[in-house]
Design a protein around this nucleic acid. Structure first.
Length: 993
RNA sequence: GGGCCUGUAGCUCAGUUGGUUAGAGCAUCCCGCUGAUAACGGGAAGGUGAGUGGUUCGAUUCCACUCAGGCCCA
């Protein structure tokens, strides 16, 4: 076969030349500009406007920091499905959301201003502080917008929603009023995990996993003197010395066996199982007593002298939660300092002593401790206990202890008043809503139900500044009411409306407004607390769809078809909040399908944390690997499993995409030379007789792929589509193009070659549209060159195209199976050659295929030539064998390794061609350059050259093969080398015109 | 203590009505190919499918229990 190319390559049919390797970031920047300039997103929206709707709800991202790649996973899904539905012709809202209010923003602003406590904020001025918070949100929402655009996300960026908006806040008021009318809002007292630095309780929702640290605290062993028994003591253990100030009881497990033990001249009570661990011999066990017999004893508390302790009777109580694994089996109880203690206290009717103020300082009535910070009192307390002969010993104890998830301070437990939504009635209604949702993965429902079963009342208040102004107005008389909107507040305002008007409903401005208590008539003001931020995010299904102002619009888009967010945490946060709020307002779920995904970790599997320095920011990843590569990685990841993200995995992915690029580049290269009339003279894929077996095969594969991709995407299951597309790219490259390469080299512009072009073009064009939602940049780049450059009538962007649909009549499963078998046989043949150590370039006479008798072996007939060519053998012999043992492979291959002189000659000639081709490249010749080849070699090789002279000339484009032992005129390159062991001196000379 | 998830090759992971010989990529070793070329291909090696028991003609797959890791709740 010869490779005669058209000389005039410039005069192409519109296809632009393709660089050998893609530069993804460069392409992406160019495409971003192109989209921006040509307003493709706007055109897409206009195209689909008014058609059937796909309603997607974006979960708001906290606009507080730039986004790392761990945010890109979810964003990629969001974009994938919105683009997919857009290409299916669905109308969409494309609204992005920012979460704005809450402690996380406050903490960052405090950091910026170097504030240490709430006092600093109040000195600075709440108004100025709140403005700073707003500024920060605007700054980072802008940054996040830019990052999202870089990732390729198409959204209506000018119309993003902000949870700090008036609409959002007032819609929450409306929701809270509904709850109030049901009687679900109440002010409760509870012991809450409390951050003394932030001066606020952390709701249950916020004590997340990262909110625990391995910490070492002093473990104190104490002896509490029993009243009425000389020198007898309860042996008690605690890790929080400051809570001893508020001790009111000691708890024992009623069923555990305790011992009365004499050590030195004192008698102690403790759990029997702990005795050998805590006490060194000698000691004397005087009695064994079940815990329940200790109940009712009274003892002298460790801090009875404090005013706060006045009148408290300390007694031993029974408690099932007492364990024997730590401590002494007798637990110190301070209901004002611990959640479980508080619960127990309610049952046992114990006194509640609360020692700390909101910043962690001891309150009055704690004598010498008053005014001291809880973090600084340990040493003094040890000394005091020692002096009172209560302290037995101190031992370091390491345990998981909660810390503030935003500022990392150790939490304390504090008795506080907070506002709650009662969940008793709602719980089951929300569960019903949750069951209406399709959860992907399915176990999501169980997780959510588990949370809903176990959750307690929703603590909605926070003693902070930047957040929803809770519209709760409580009068000194005790009565409170909840305001449901701006107009209602205005109508009830008796003071301060003028000072508020014109401001957003935030502190401090909103607090100017006073209303009249309907019960007693007194002037009443808003409670100072702000709202839990999950109220902000929970209302967005309503606030963003004009629930209160435009019912028609709301009806059109609610409930949402689809949401997708990161799983961990959101069960009790966003998913919970939107389910809860929608259940209250509409009695049903706000979304139909939820796709949840796991976390992005770094390459080593470690959490990505700003503080750990292992976060990869979106821009960095985009510039180093390309946004498309990143997206491909995310979409291919099993959503239930954490993704270890990094540049190693990116390199692997890039290589896969390079294969696609190579096929594309191959097509363009030859299409530019041959100028086939693409698009005008298309063969009918179903009927055209010029289609070869391989043409029909790849077209079948193409349609199988399209079918699978559409089905799986419809089902929100993208992982198999990635595998299928990668497999198709491999099929195209490794089999279709490789097997057809010479077809494209042929000089004659015949029908067969044209069919090849059409077939490959069909594959590439459909594939490019298919991957457009996945890799919007690469798809656009290829589409512009493959389609727009040759046919201006086509849509101007790939994203304005219809999504490809499969033609199932072109799917031939039998054919696909046959080709798979052929490839398997070729592989077996290669293995046989490998075993015989004979390289593929050396032709052999025969290969024998052993096939099972039962199969229809005629099916291999059309492929015999392919197998011959792949294995470089002259003949394929097909033998049917009876194989009874089922464990023997179906097919096997043997090769005839005997070499005749003719075969050897051919082997020499193939080897020579191979070497010369390398020399041509080395000499820098064009593919189409003609040469003269001069050689000097052994007589063995000379014989082979003579035998295959015309073959060699054709392959290397040599006008002449000349034996030469003298200097060669116009030599371009001369090399001494060995051809299958025979020495040869080769000289190449380009023919110049 | 309860709930959920995971456990497959050295590493990262696929694998559905239960069915011949459990796959891919990376890494390793060997070889090849060569005008798609700083690319690519083939082959080898690598597995008690976490463990035990059960259902079944047959279990990586279904069930029970155990172990290990992760997450949530208490």
């Amino acid at each position: 076969m010869s490779k005669k190319f058209h000389k005039n390559q410039e005069n192409s049919n519109g296809f632009q030349p393709v660089p050998p390797k893609p530069n993804f970031p460069e392409i992406e920047h160019r495409i971003l500009e192109f989209w921006e300039k040509s307003k493709h997103f706007e055109k897409l929206r206009a195209k689909n406007k008014g058609k059937k709707k796909f309603s997607f709800l974006d979960g708001p991202i906290t606009a507080n920091n730039p986004m790392g790649v761990h945010h890109a996973w979810g964003r990629t899904y969001k974009d994938l499905f919105q683009r997919f539905y857009a290409m299916l012709g669905y109308d969409q809202r494309y609204q992005n959301g920012f979460d704005c209010q809450g402690l996380w923003v406050e903490v960052e602003v405090e950091r910026e201003l170097d504030f240490k406590s709430k006092r600093d904020i109040e000195q600075f001025g709440i108004d100025k502080f709140v403005e700073k918070c707003k500024e920060r949100v605007l700054k980072y929402s802008a940054i996040q917008t830019k990052q999202s655009i870089r990732l390729g996300q198409w959204m209506d960026w000018d119309n993003s929603y902000y949870t700090m908006s008036d609409e959002n806040n007032y819609t929450i008021w409306y929701f809270l009023k509904k709850c109030y009318e049901h009687g679900w809002i109440y002010k409760g007292t509870d012991v809450m995990p409390w951050c003394a630095r932030c001066g606020t309780a952390l709701s249950e929702h916020e004590i997340v996993t990262e909110g625990y640290r391995e910490l070492t605290h002093p473990g104190l062993y104490l002896r509490f003197p029993i009243i009425g028994k000389e020198k007898e003591y309860l042996f008690v253990w605690t890790t929080t010395p400051w809570t001893l100030t508020s001790n009111v009881a000691a708890a024992v497990h009623p069923e555990i066996i305790y011992v009365k033990v004499k050590k030195d001249d004192a008698i102690y009570y403790l759990a029997k199982s702990r005795l050998p661990i805590l006490f060194e011999k000698p000691y004397e066990v005087l009695a064994e007593i079940p815990g329940k017999e200790l109940v009712g004893l009274t003892y002298q508390g460790p801090f009875d002298e404090l005013e706060a302790q006045a009148g408290v009777i300390h007694r031993v109580v029974a408690w099932d939660e007492v364990s024997e694994t730590d401590g002494s089996g007798i637990v110190h109880i301070a209901p004002g300092c611990g959640k479980e203690d508080f619960e127990l206290g309610k049952i046992e009717n114990l006194a509640v002593i609360a020692p700390l103020d909101e910043n962690g300082y001891f309150l009055p009535k704690f004598n010498w401790l008053t005014g001291k910070n809880v973090k600084e009192v340990n040493e003094a307390i040890f000394k005091d206990l020692e002096r009172k002969r209560i302290l037995h010993k101190v031992e370091d104890y390491t345990h998981r202890y909660p810390v503030c998830w935003r500022c990392d301070s150790e939490l304390v437990f504090r008795l506080v008043d907070e506002w709650f939504i009662k969940m008793d009635e709602l719980r089951f209604q929300i569960m019903e809503s949750a069951k209406q949702v399709r959860w992907i993965p399915e176990f999501g429902l169980e997780r959510e139900l588990d949370w809903l079963t176990n959750m307690q009342d929703w603590c909605i208040s926070k003693k902070r500044y930047w957040g929803l102004a809770l519209p709760i107005y409580q009068c000194n008389c005790g009565h409170f009411e909840v305001i449901g909107g701006k107009e209602e507040l205005k109508s009830k305002a008796v003071e301060g409306w003028d000072k508020f008007e014109g401001h957003t409903p935030h502190r401090p401005w909103i607090d100017e407004v006073k209303i009249k208590c309907p019960k007693c008539g007194a002037k009443t003001q808003r409670i100072p607390e702000v709202g839990n931020p999950w109220l902000d995010a929970g209302i967005v299904p309503f606030s963003t769809t004009r629930y209160l102002t435009d019912n028609k619009y709301w009806q059109a888009w609610f409930p949402f078809d689809f949401i997708t967010e990161c799983f961990p945490g959101q069960f009790r946060n966003w998913f919970y909040a939107i389910l809860a709020m929608s259940t209250v307002l509409e009695g049903k779920t706000p979304f139909r399908t939820l796709l949840g995904h796991a976390l992005v970790k770094d390459e080593k599997g470690e959490d990505m944390h700003k503080s750990a320095g292992n976060v990869i920011w979106i821009e960095e990843a985009a510039e180093k690997m390309g946004a498309d590569v990143m997206r491909w990685i995310f979409i291919g990841q099993n959503p239930t499993i954490n993704l270890n993200f990094g540049y190693t995995v990116a390199r692997e992915t890039t290589r896969k995409l390079l294969t696609l690029w190579n096929v594309y580049s191959f097509f363009i290269t030859y299409a530019r030379i041959d100028k086939p009339q693409i698009g005008t003279d298309k063969p009918q894929m179903s009927t055209d007789k010029t289609l070869s077996v391989l043409d029909r095969w790849i077209i079948s594969r193409l349609n199988s792929m399209i079918k699978l991709v559409r089905e799986r995407l419809m089902d929100y299951d993208p992982v198999p589509t990635i595998r299928e597309i990668e497999r198709f790219i491999d099929d195209m490259s490794l089999w279709y193009v490789r097997r057809n390469r010479r077809r494209f080299w042929k000089s004659e512009d015949d029908k067969d070659k044209l069919t090849g072009y059409h077939t490959l073009y069909e594959c590439l064009m459909k594939l490019v549209k298919l991957i457009a939602p996945y890799m919007p940049f690469l798809a656009e780049e290829l589409y512009q060159n493959l389609v727009v450059s040759v046919d201006k009538k086509q849509p101007e962007s790939v994203h304005l195209c219809d999504y490809p649909d499969s033609d199932t009549t072109l799917i031939d499963n039998k054919l696909e199976a046959e080709v798979a078998l052929v490839r398997e046989l070729v592989s077996l043949g290669h293995a046989a050659r490998e075993k015989a150590k004979i390289k593929v370039r050396q032709p052999l006479s025969k290969a024998t295929v052993f096939a099972p008798k039962t199969n229809d072996n005629k099916l291999l007939e059309p492929y015999i030539n392919v197998i011959k060519d792949e294995l470089n053998v002259k003949e394929i012999e097909l033998l049917e064998v009876d194989r009874e043992a089922p464990q023997v492979a179906k097919y096997s291959i043997e090769i005839d390794t005997r070499l005749t002189p003719e075969l050897e000659n051919e082997g020499f000639s193939r080897e020579l061609v191979h070497k010369v081709q390398n020399l041509r490249k080395e000499a820098g010749f064009e593919v189409t350059d003609r040469i003269r080849l001069y050689y000097k070699t052994s007589s063995r090789l000379e014989t082979a050259i003579q035998a295959f002279k015309s073959y060699i000339q054709n392959e290397i484009l040599a006008t002449e093969l000349l034996e030469a032992d003298r200097e060669v005129p116009q030599a371009d390159l001369t090399k001494d080398l060995r051809i299958n062991g025979e020495p040869a001196k080769l000289t190449l000379s380009k023919i110049r015109r």
